[in-house]
Design a protein around this nucleic acid. Structure first.
Length: 272
DNA sequence: TCCCAGGCTCTCT
DNA sequence: AGAGAGCATGGG
């Protein structure tokens, strides 16, 4: 790894395609810039990231922050090549994994993941992005030219009418219920990372508007449960069409990653 | 215009 | 326990 004043370079990173990872529907605050780099906000910080050959360059950070924040966020210590190899038990699965071989599962902040996927229900990705942008602009903290993701404390103090400007529809009351349950400690998100998948899922489902799918998204993208397998309309269609309704056994230990390969594969190949 | 979207709640069998 | 309507909003 090479370091200069305001950026770091990570040499020879495998299985990391920025577009595949940042625009595959797992996170909603990344934008591609005119020069092909990507700009995003996470953990209250804004960075730009780009790829040059097989090197990853992160602008707007330093080594200390990289070690404590971005290394984990971008899941850089996981060997995705090995996972892709081990799902060879099924030809369609293998094809999907190879097609999306640059996807990494981002380890997002638990509250942001939970809140974002509450917003995602019965919704489409462009509109999810818009709602989240308005949520941040209205209730996040301003930091020079951007807004952080709102805290649950801030949203716990809101009414559904207060959230009207973000135009989230019927989801507003769900956001508030989630924020209140986290704020008043009836749900401890940090604790959920340690209690095991099933326990964590059922606790999340005590929130109004959180069912198995939204819970699985929070578990996978926010709480580090790589075995969580969010099953939305796209995945259900794909499972029925290609996999007899359920994922092959060889994929189960890292179902969430495989789920993302399938999601990306069917959506990209169905584009006109 | 119309259909549908990274679903869930509520009600009625 | 299983099926189906309704939900807010707006992208394509």
């Amino acid at each position: 790894m090479a370091i200069t004043e305001n950026q770091i370079i990570i040499k020879d990173v495998k299985n990391f395609d920025l577009a595949q990872t940042l625009d595959c529907g797992q996170a909603f605050r990344w934008k591609m810039c005119d020069d092909g780099s990507w700009s995003g906000i996470a953990h209250g910080k804004k960075i730009r990231i780009l790829k040059k050959d097989n090197d990853i360059i992160i602008i707007g950070t330093d080594q200390q922050e990289f070690e404590t924040v971005w290394k984990k966020y971008f899941d850089l210590e996981r060997d995705y090549g090995k996972i892709i190899e081990s799902v060879g038990c099924n030809e369609t699965l293998k094809a999907a994994a190879l097609f999306g071989n640059g996807i990494r599962i981002l380890k997002q902040e638990p509250w942001e993941a939970l809140c974002s996927f509450i917003i995602s229900q019965n919704n489409n990705i462009p509109r999810i992005k818009g709602i989240i942008e308005r949520l941040c602009e209205n209730f996040g903290d301003r930091k020079d030219d951007y807004y952080t993701f709102p805290t649950y404390e801030r949203l716990a103090a809101c009414t559904a009418e207060d959230l009207a400007p973000i135009r989230s529809g019927f989801r507003a009351k769900y956001i508030i219920d989630a924020a209140q349950k986290v704020a008043n400690k009836s749900i401890d998100l940090n604790q959920l990372e340690k209690v095991g998948y099933s326990q964590a899922q059922s606790q999340l489902m005590t929130i109004k508007g959180v069912g198995p799918k939204v819970a699985d998204c929070a578990l996978l993208y926010g709480l580090g449960y790589i075995e969580a397998f969010p099953s939305d309309v796209w995945i259900k269609r794909a499972l029925n069409e290609f996999f007899d309704g359920k994922i092959p056994d060889c994929a189960k230990p890292f179902g969430g990653i495989v789920q993302q390969y399938i999601f990306y594969y069917i959506r990209e190949t169905s584009k006109k």
